[in-house]
Design a binder for these strands. Structure first.
Length: 830
DNA sequence: ACCAACATTGTTTTT
DNA sequence: CAATGTTGGT
């Protein structure tokens, strides 16, 4: 299977192969000016019939791939093969010898997108993508640049990257240091303001006067400046700095910039509509070149899918591309390979209500007689909405209408706001319907992981005060607020890191003897670990740190039900370190790639927000909550005005276009918001849908019904006496179960661990939380447990099996009480 | 230093 | 309503 790459050498990165002298292209620079012999031969062949990887592209896609030189904007509508174009384009550049892998700069927004691109390029070129060192997120590429040139912006190359949590704690200290009331001026809010300024590329001196005055009695600007100073003294960067520092660096050092101009022969940007001002400035610096240096930029995006305006994205960037890059070629991809005509028709009609768009109309050739129109349903309240959606899902799962059975994996519920999820979770738990919440709390945000990471950080970076403060009294060592405060002041007065200050202060008698002893022990520990850093394998050292610090013991002694899970997570953390060469390398990875693998092998309905659904597709999509105030969201209207409304509409467009075959939209007349019931109006977006592609569901039984009036009962309801009555213990238990489950699913907000519920296998499961507490009968599989068995559950702890139905166990847990759980979620205790 | 009662505040999320 | 954070008690 020739893919056109057999003769293309892949190079490792540093130093960039200025004069490559390997294999087929030997002796000549792979520039447009002078092609290697093999490349020329391939080009000749390609001219005749095109290489394999171009086969199957439509004419627009092919044009987008083959227009390699100059500036190109690809307007890629939903489902038009955007990623395919991007990856094939890179493959094409490589195959034709136009550039080496290390000479292509390809930028994405998320690690997920970067990973996917790497994978797909790998498929095209046969796996050797390690040779593309400059494919990554804006931030990861920013780090790479900064590590090389750190001294040019006043850092050293081993700077620390702070995450939001660190930043907030740091700002809180600064606010307190200013003598301000940190309650009146919340650090979180100021962190968000700084983030906003940085998204716009603004230094403390450049922020608008009004913004500066709006915070901390007019001290906004000073506070921002103080924050930057503090970062510098900590040798640290926040996420915004990863973009801003390179910008500063390039501006102040034109010679360095010029090197990169020459290095990056081709620049590609994914999701261009999501770029913020800082990213835009960054990109322009790299992409706009002086006469004589070729300028090949390709931005791919869709103005209709710009849904991140609220976090600084400027749709304007894509709208004015042609002005920024004169002579740019604009290629529209409008042929959709995903959805039915009805779905595209509905989405297209809706989005046409937006002004200020570049204007695309998606079309498809796909037309089948049984294509369903988009269905709009009305429900009395959100509870009924969830119930009806659940029934529809079960209907599809059973496969009645067209006789086909549908996988839960092919269905998704896309909500505007995450509080809507709960109602569905509740319902699915009682139905025993598997679901997964996508986009929840992440592995690396869990309390225990962050604590452990703080230990590792401090060992590698003794100046990391934030890490120090985090763990100095975790586990409890009797080093409370007062001691830490004293230490803090001591360190500040002398302008030294806190760990160093601690070493000094134990020599004095400034502290009480008890604290002094405790602190001394801490210092000794870290001294030892720092020595071992050079000699001991890093995973071994990590284990040792967690043991000797007493951190694992802390959780072993913790009686709460989620302690075992946390210990398991810590093991997983150490395990995941094995893939890295050093502790430093691992820390770098974690600070940038804050997500982990998700478990895809269970059949489950996905529940997620519309925002996190972007880029995904499902056979069947449910869009609940189309009511004024929720969708479009009141706040978007209040704060964003017309632009806000248009962004909401784009969100609706994104939602509909996720569907391949079926799209069900719901609205309710009554919804509980902030605890109280409010009556609601149908969303204006409903009236913006075209009648030709939409049908209104017949209000079969239930509209206006009270509670359990006339709605149809599901098969499961009938089968399970527990699931159907509000007054039975079963219902109450289910309520209990689900509320515990949701609490824990969102637990990391409060700094608590997120439990993996069920599935015995290990592996960090960050973005996906499986919520299936109540069992679902699988009659054929007899349980391996017997009544009376002693079992352990990762969330509920130990308990005794009280009853068994199929693989569904009722267990009396020592701590959590009686729960019904699938037998796969518990293991026997000997 | 730790826990329990009270007040506060409610979009969307990545790096 | 319910999750979060702060205050005040022991």
């Amino acid at each position: 299977m020739s893919n056109g790459f057999d003769d293309i050498p892949f190079f490792d990165e540093e130093p960039a192969p200025r004069k490559p002298a390997t294999g087929a292209t030997s002796g000549s620079e792979p520039a447009s000016g002078g092609l290697g012999i093999a490349a020329r031969a391939m080009a000749a062949r390609d001219q005749a019939r095109g290489p394999d990887y171009l086969a199957g592209l439509n004419p627009e896609q092919r044009e987008a791939v083959e227009t390699t030189d100059g500036s190109v904007l690809v307007l890629a509508g939903a489902g038009t093969g955007k990623t395919r174009v991007l990856t094939t384009r890179i493959a094409h550049i490589l195959a034709t010898g136009r550039a080496f892998p290390s000479q292509i700069l390809a930028v994405t927004f998320t690690n997920k997108a970067a990973r996917e691109m790497k994978e797909r390029i790998g498929m095209l070129v046969g796996g050797a993508v390690e040779g593309m060192p400059w494919l990554g997120t804006f931030h990861s590429i920013g780090v790479k640049l900064l590590r090389r040139h750190a001294e040019l912006v006043g850092l050293t190359s081993d700077f620390t990257i702070l995450d939001t949590d660190d930043v907030v704690r740091l700002i809180k200290q600064l606010i307190q240091a200013e003598g301000l009331d940190d309650k009146r001026w919340p650090a979180k809010q100021f962190a968000a303001m700084i983030d906003g300024w940085k998204n716009k590329g603004l230094d403390p001196s450049q922020i608008p006067e009004g913004d500066a005055r709006a915070f901390a009695n007019g001290k906004g600007r000073e506070l921002y400046a103080a924050y930057q100073n503090r970062l510098k003294s900590l040798n640290a960067c926040d996420f915004g700095d990863l973009l801003l520092h390179p910008i500063r660096m390039f501006r102040a050092n034109p010679d360095v910039l010029k090197d990169y101009h020459q290095k990056f022969r081709y620049i590609l940007v994914d999701e261009y509509q999501d770029t913020n001002t800082a990213q835009y400035m960054w990109l322009r610096l790299l992409a706009q070149r002086p006469q004589g240096i070729p300028q090949n930029v390709c931005c791919v995006g869709d103005d209709d899918q710009s849904i991140y305006g609220w976090r600084g994205a400027e749709v304007d960037n894509i709208l004015r591309f042609e002005k920024d890059f004169p002579g740019a070629k604009v290629i529209k991809l409008e042929r959709n390979y995903r959805s039915t005509e009805h779905i595209l028709g509905a989405a297209g009609h809706l989005i046409a209500h937006n002004e200020g768009r570049l204007g695309k109309t998606l079309f498809t050739d796909r037309r089948e007689p049984d294509d369903e129109k988009v269905v709009v349903h009305a429900a009395w309240d959100s509870e009924e909405e969830a119930r009806a959606v659940g029934e529809e899902i079960e209907r599809l799962q059973r496969g009645d209408a067209d006789g086909r059975k549908h996988n839960l994996n092919d269905m998704a519920i896309l909500v505007r706001a995450s509080f809507q999820m709960r109602e569905f979770e509740d319902r699915f738990v009682t139905l025993g319907l598997n679901y997964r919440v996508v986009g929840g709390p992440r592995f690396y945000e869990r309390l225990e992981i962050r604590d452990a990471m703080a230990y590792f950080r401090l060992v590698c970076q003794p100046a990391d005060d934030l890490a120090f403060e985090r763990i100095v009294n975790t586990p409890k060592r009797g080093l409370g607020d007062t001691t830490v405060r004293a230490l803090h002041d001591y360190a500040r007065a002398r302008d030294i890191p806190m760990l160093a200050a601690a070493a000094d202060i134990v020599e004095t008698d400034e502290l009480k003897p008890k604290a002094r002893k405790a602190l001394f022990d801490v210092i000794q520990m870290f001294r030892r670990w720092q020595e071992l850093l050079e000699t001991t394998p890093h995973t071994e050292l990590a284990e040792q740190i967690l043991e000797e610090s007493g951190y694992t013991d802390m959780w072993k002694n913790d009686k709460s039900a989620d302690a075992p899970g946390r210990l398991e997570n810590l093991k997983e953390l150490v395990r995941s370190m094995e893939a890295f060469e050093s502790m430093r390398g691992f820390l770098e990875h974690v600070s940038l790639v804050m997500d982990a693998e998700q478990n895809e092998d269970m059949d489950a309905v996905s529940i997620m927000t519309l925002h996190s659904a972007k880029g995904l597709e499902f056979d069947t999509v449910f869009l609940p909550g189309w009511e004024e105030g929720l969708f479009p969201h009141q706040r978007a209207l209040d704060e964003g005005g017309r632009a806000g409304l248009e962004e909401e509409r784009r969100l609706a467009y994104v939602g509909i276009t996720r569907a391949k075959r079926r799209c069900h939209i719901w609205f309710v007349s009554n919804r509980r918001i902030h605890g109280l019931w409010q009556s609601t109006m149908p969303s204006r977006f409903l009236d913006e849908l075209p009648v030709t592609h939409v049908e209104v569901a017949q209000t079969e039984q239930s509209y206006g019904g009270y509670g359990r009036g006339g709605y149809g009962q599901s098969r499961f309801d009938k089968a399970d006496p527990f699931a159907n009555s509000y007054s039975t213990p079963g219902w109450k238990r289910a309520q209990q179960n689900k509320s515990e489950a949701t609490r824990d699913n969102w637990g990391s907000r409060s700094g608590h661990a997120v439990e993996r519920i069920g599935y015995g296998e290990s592996g960090p499961r960050a973005r996906t939380i499986e919520g299936e507490l109540v069992a679902k009968s699988v009659a054929d599989t007899p349980s391996k447990f017997a009544v009376g068995d002693r079992v352990f559950h990762i969330k509920f702890g130990n308990g005794n099996v009280a009853a068994i139905e199929g693989n569904k166990l009722t267990i009396n847990f020592d701590r959590a009480g009686e729960k019904r759980v699938l037998d796969g979620f518990v293991e026997p205790v000997s």
